[in-house]
Nucleic acid binder design. Structure first.
Length: 416
RNA sequence: GGAGGGGUGGCAGAGCGGUCGAAUGCGGCGGUCUCGAAAACCGUUACCGGCGGUUCCGUCGGUCGAGGGUUCAAAUCCCUCCCCCUCCGCCA
C-alpha cells in the first residue's frame, strides 16, 4: 500500500503518478474517505478521553460515564465504518510508477531498452516446441488433459532431465551471487497474498483451498516476501532465491497461447527476491536484471529487454523489466523473465521494517525471475537441428542434462 | 484426528477487573569512574495514529497472538479463530 500520510501531504504528485496506472479515481475516493476519517477521529478521541478515570467512580461519575457511553457508541460506529472504507480503498490503490517508466496501458507501450543477439537463422523451417517435443514424447498434453484438464503437461524422458538441470543450474548460479537458497511453501494464507499485492485486485487468478483458507501461489515471490512478514529485519540487503512450483488460473487468457507448455496452469520457476534499504532498490533492480541477462546469455539465447509501460504494471510494481527471448517457432520475442521493483508497497502491507538511526522504516522489496520452463521452450526451439534433435547449452550438462537430446539411442530408454 | 499446556516489550518473565503500556532480570543506548577498558553505579530504552508547535518535543487516542462480546472500566472474564509446546494416533 501507499504511504497515506505522504499522499495526503502531496496529493497532486501522487494523483499524477497514479493517473498513469489508471488509478486516479480510486485515489481521489481514498482522499475523500481519509478526510471523513480525520474529521471523526478527534471527536471520538475527545469523548474517549472523557471516559478515562482512575480508580472506582463515584455514583455521580458513574451516571456521567453512562451518558458519555451512549454518545460515544454512535460516533465510534461511524468512525469504524469510515476507517473500513478508507482501508478498503487503500488496499486498491496501486504503487505509483517510477518516473522513468513509459506512459501507456498495453504491452505495446513498453520501450525496448536493449537488444542482444540476432534472431536465430535456420536453413530449414524451424519447428515449435510442441512439434519438437511431440516427436519424442517429451511433452504429453493428451494424457495431462485426461488427468488434469487443459493447460497441463507431463514432461517426460530427456526433457524432464533437461528441465531439472535448468533449475538446478540457475539455482547454483544465483547462490553464487550471494542469494540464500530456499524451498518455500506453495500453499499460503490470505495475508501473504494480500501482503504481496496480489489480493484483492487479482484474486480470481489463483487457486484456493477454501476448506483450509489457503491459496496456491502463482509465484514464490509470495512466500519469499512473506518470509519476513511482521518482522524487524537487519543485515540488509537480504537476498534469496527459491525454486517452486507456481499455479495460475490463466482465467483471462482464454484462447491465448494454447499450444504446448508456453502458458499452463502449473509450472516451475527459480525466483530471486531481495529486501533492501530504500535508497538502494534502484541499483538492486538493475542488479537483478543484470543477473537475468547473464543467465540468458550463458544459455546462448538472443533476447531484448523491455521497460514495461505504467498502465501495464501490476498493482505492486513501481517499475518492471521483462526479458523476451526469441522463439523461432513463433518467430517473435516472448517474455521469459520479469523483474520488478515494488519499493515499499509490499513491505507496508506485510509490515517488514528495519531500523535506521533507531527509527523503524519500511524496507524495499524486489523480485525477479531466474528461469522458468519458458526458457526450456526457447532452448528447444533455438537449438534444434533439422533431424529434430537438440544441442543442449553447455552449462546445463554439468547439472545432469544430456549434451544432445532427441537423437537415436537415448530415445529407446524413455519409451512411454 | 484425540487429550492437555501456553502465546505479555529486543529476549526471559511477572501481572489474572480500575491507580498497568505493564514489576523484575538480561540485552541495547547515554553518563559517572578510568590513561583506556572491564566491573560497579546512575539514567534511559515498545509500536501505531490524530492534533499543536516541528532536527525533535508536547498532548490525546489505540495496541499485551487476531477478531468479537460482557462491564462505567479488560493484559486480566466469556466466545470464535490463528500459532507454538507436550503426549497419543496416523503418516512421506
Amino acid at each position: 500500500m501507499i504511504d497515506l500520510r505522504a499522499a495526503r501531504n502531496d496529493p497532486d504528485t501522487y494523483r499524477a503518478a497514479l493517473a498513469r496506472k489508471g488509478a486516479e479515481a480510486v485515489f481521489d475516493e481514498l482522499l475523500a474517505a481519509d478526510r471523513a476519517c480525520l474529521e471523526l477521529q478527534p471527536r471520538v478521541e475527545e469523548l474517549r478521553a472523557r471516559t478515562k478515570l482512575k480508580g472506582k467512580p463515584t455514583p455521580e461519575q458513574l451516571e456521567e460515564l453512562r451518558r458519555v457511553k451512549v454518545e460515544l457508541q454512535e460516533l465510534e460506529q461511524r468512525f469504524a465504518e469510515a476507517g473500513e472504507r478508507r482501508q478498503e480503498l487503500l488496499d486498491r490503490v496501486p504503487n505509483p510508477p517510477a518516473e522513468d517508466v513509459p506512459d501507456g496501458a498495453s504491452e505495446e507501450d513498453a520501450t525496448v531498452v536493449k537488444l542482444v543477439g540476432e534472431p536465430t537463422e535456420f536453413s530449414f523451417e524451424p519447428r515449435d516446441h510442441l512439434d519438437l517435443a511431440a516427436a519424442h514424447g517429451w511433452i504429453d498434453v493428451e494424457r495431462a488433459a485426461r488427468v488434469s484438464g487443459s493447460r497441463f503437461v507431463y514432461r517426460v524422458g530427456d526433457l524432464a532431465l533437461l528441465e531439472i538441470a535448468l533449475y538446478r543450474w540457475a539455482l547454483e548460479r544465483i547462490v553464487q551471487k550471494g542469494h540464500v537458497p530456499v524451498l518455500p511453501p506453495v500453499l499460503v494464507r490470505e495475508e501473504a497474498m494480500y501482503g504481496t499485492g496480489f489480493f484483492p485486485s487479482e484474486k480470481g487468478d489463483f487457486y484456493d483451498v477454501p476448506e483450509d483458507g489457503l491459496y496456491l501461489v502463482g509465484t514464490s515471490e509470495v512466500p519469499l516476501a512473506a518470509f519476513h512478514m511482521g518482522e524487524e529485519v537487519d543485515g540488509l540487503p537480504l537476498r534469496y532465491v527459491a525454486l517452486s512450483t507456481c499455479f495460475r488460473r490463466e482465467a483471462g487468457a482464454a484462447g491465448r497461447d494454447t499450444r504446448g507448455m508456453f502458458r499452463v496452469h502449473q509450472f516451475d520457476k527459480v525466483e530471486m527476491f531481495v529486501f533492501c534499504e530504500p535508497e538502494r532498490s534502484r541499483d538492486e533492480h538493475e542488479r537483478l536484471l543484470a543477473i537475468e541477462e547473464q543467465l540468458v546469455q550463458e544459455l546462448g539465447l538472443p533476447y531484448r529487454v523491455l521497460n514495461i509501460a505504467a498502465g501495464d504494471l501490476g498493482a505492486s510494481a513501481a517499475k518492471k523489466y521483462d526479458i523476451e527471448a526469441w522463439f523461432p517457432g513463433q518467430s517473435r520475442y516472448r517474455e521469459i523473465t520479469s523483474t520488478s521493483n515494488t519499493t515499499d508497497f509490499q513491505s507496508r502491507r506485510l509490515n517488514v521494517r528495519y531500523r535506521r538511526d533507531g527509527k523503524l522504516e519500511h524496507v524495499h522489496t524486489l523480485n525477479g525471475t531466474a528461469v522458468t520452463a519458458r526458457a526450456l521452450i526457447a532452448i528447444l526451439e533455438s537449438f534444434q537441428d533439422e533431424d529434430g534433435s537438440i544441442s543442449v547449452p553447455e552449462p546445463l550438462t554439468a547439472f545432469g542434462a544430456p549434451s544432445r537430446v532427441g537423437s537415436g539411442a537415448r530415445e529407446l530408454q524413455f519409451r512411454t
